[in-house]
Design a binder for these strands. Structure first.
Lengths: 155, 155
DNA sequence: TATTGTTATACTCTATAACTATA
DNA sequence: TATAGTTATAGAGTATAACAATA
């Protein structure tokens, strides 16, 4: 007697989607008290770690489209966590930095996410956790290996 | 010198999201020639493996809301892969089955997805693959362990 | 009264084209 | 002309309320 989704369970994408949905829902609950979502959290952390970053660079790092990044930054700027400063070299560009408030928020949110990660990874050995991390990285590296007609273009 | 997203990379959710995006985009390209998306593929497979299933049961199995399942089934029925039959016991319910055409489509799509999986899992040992599978399952089981104030409410 | 499938709807995420101001 | 940030918009995916037919 097998589960009704036994065939699907043999595919990486299926279990990955289900696991990610779990993580995402759970993480959003964790971040809600901070007024953050997964995206705003990620953006906040990257700006804190790379002060002076331009919006285009930030979008590139996180694989977010520029127009969508604008809204995320509006959000973070409105809550006083991030500042869009003018660049001295290029008056088109913004140099992004976190405020003191933003830094504190970032620190507290990171602590919460660490605890969240530990809870969801309960029962997984350290070795298995490293293996998971390595596997997820490898999958990202294997992307774009598709034969041909994939490179979009051929609508 | 560390990557600009080094801090984020230490969180499961981040690498999981990036890996899943890769799989999803790639998989949709793989399924496009069959006229299938990830959802329609999953639904097709589960119906084939569980003939006579009702829509509500199917929705439950795949964690899809009933109203959304209706549209997925419209799609599969329109392409002649699935039939909504009348149930003899309950005239409200539909008994779902795949047509011959649907079965052939399912077989070919599964082969394609198997090859797709193998390509994305290239460079990951069998042991690591089993470990990945187990870890993803464990994460799903650990969900809903959140303390309290999470149940929304406390705006 | 409860349940099955359905409709309508809304909200989030994501993706693209086109504008503006600078370069 | 090209680029940075922006605006508007369109398309998925997902979630909820309410209805008709049936139980």
């Amino acid at each position: 007697m097998s589960a009704p989704d036994a065939t699907l369970s043999s595919f990486m994408g299926y279990d990955m989607k289900r696991a990610f949905n779990v993580i995402q829902n759970d993480l959003n609950v964790t971040l809600q008290p901070f007024g953050l979502r997964m995206v705003t959290f990620s953006v906040l952390v990257v700006i804190r770690d790379n002060p002076g970053l331009k919006q285009t660079q930030l979008a590139e790092i996180l694989s977010i489209e520029r127009p969508n990044m604008v809204l995320v930054l509006d959000d973070l700027e409105q809550m006083g966590a991030v500042v869009r400063g003018r660049s001295p070299d290029d008056r088109r560009a913004h140099e992004l930095t976190v405020t003191l408030k933003g830094r504190r928020l970032c620190d507290r949110a990171i602590d919460a996410v660490r605890r969240h990660d530990a809870r969801l990874a309960a029962g997984i050995s350290d070795a298995a956790r490293r293996s998971l991390h390595a596997a997820l990285r490898q999958i990202q590296m294997n992307a774009g290996t598709q034969d041909d007609h994939n490179t979009v273009s051929g609508t």
